[in-house]
Simulated assay, not measured.
Amino acid sequence: MKTALICGISGQDGAYLARLLLDKGYQVYGGSRDAQMASFTNLARLSIRQDVKLVSVSINDFRSVLQTLLKVKPDEVYNLAGQSSVGLSFEQPVETLESISVGTLNLLEAIRFSNLPIKFYNAGSSECFGDTGREAADEMTPFRPRSPYGVAKAAAFWQVANYREAYQLHASTGILFNHESPLRPERFVTQKIVVSACRIANGSAETLTLGNIDIARDWGWAPDYIEAMWLMLQQPKPDDYVIATGQTRKLRDFIQIVFETVGLHWEDHIIIDPSLFRPTDIAEGYANPSKARKQLSWQAHYKMAEVAKLMVEERIQTEGRRAAQIVTS
């Protein structure tokens, strides 16, 4: 039985990864700054809360990280921790840099210091590339990040590459483009759109206020991308991979599909507020995931249109269950 430690298990990716690893027979440890106080709502939603061993670990504290590694002795470590919102990173740049860059460095150094044969996965981001125009970014595309979040992720990427080359660690980074699911919190624009559309369809008179809806992104389905993380650590040699669908669509298209799914015209319910535009936003993001397809035999099963519909369907089912519980209680 393999043992895995997931740092950032309470988030969207951490919960889906925990479920995947449990299904594969792993013993799964989940790291959180305060495991006794955290709610781990996403683990509960996936009905795996009781199957994960939770440990308190602060990845910004080297001693805490090292103690955890020596205690758990994991075969694989997945670093999904850190401030995860691009928009919030403009308001909290120091917290973003420390939680992502310093946290990654502590994990790498603790693995090196422990001398344990640990395979390490680092959650990278397409935000590292910045605005590449219509060029489809691959693993050789230069980084030009346009947000504090992108800067922090770029620093973490190069730390992983440095430790891989200098100390021969099995350390890989997945450069993931946008990936969504029902586990996304509402501060992410995709979930904000889905939740609002469902409320309006149920009779709410609210109006949804958004920023720039003409941005274009490569949107995928989070459970697909989790499999790619695991596949990277099963390779004989560590490497970095762009993970994406290869299809780019505008946020406007996502909005249209969501509202059409609930039987509404989006133009009747949305207001654009220029004050919500980010200081430096990426106009378009294109990806070339051919390396992952060739070397990992991985490809996305769902594109943006399917992702939007899946998120709406899950939201409707969740609201139906809540209504039934209210009636029965």
Rank of each mutant, 00 (worst) to 15 (best):
E313N: 12
P223Q: 01
R249L: 04
L54P: 09
D253Y: 12
E135I: 11
R217C: 01
T132S: 12
F120N: 01
C198S: 03
A308V: 06
P223A: 04
Q299E: 12
S84N: 13
E306K: 10
G87T: 14
Q168H: 09
A283N: 08
H301V: 12
S64H: 03
Q67C: 01
M229N: 02
Q50H: 14
R146Y: 10
Y302P: 01
R249G: 00
K53P: 00
Y121L: 07
F90S: 11
L183C: 02
S32D: 11
G130W: 02
K192T: 05
V258W: 03
S297P: 02
T68I: 04
Q234M: 09
A244I: 11
P74H: 11
S196F: 00
D239Q: 09
A222L: 05
A222E: 04
K53G: 05
K2R: 14
T132G: 04
Q36D: 13
Y167F: 15
I326S: 12
L251T: 06
P74Q: 10
R33S: 03
A222D: 04
L43I: 10
R184S: 11
P274H: 15
A15M: 08
L105P: 01
W298E: 07
G11P: 09
V57S: 01
G25Y: 07
A228I: 06
S126G: 14
F259L: 02
S297L: 15
Q168G: 01
A323W: 08
E135G: 10
A323C: 04
G31A: 15
L66N: 06
L46S: 08
I272F: 13
Q36F: 08
G103Q: 03
Q27F: 07
T261W: 01
A283T: 07
A152W: 09
V77W: 05
G14Y: 04
K53E: 14
R278S: 12
S58Q: 08
D34V: 00
P74M: 12
V195Y: 00
Q168R: 10
R249I: 13
K237E: 14
T248W: 06
V262K: 03
S297V: 15
N178Y: 08
V242W: 06
E135N: 13
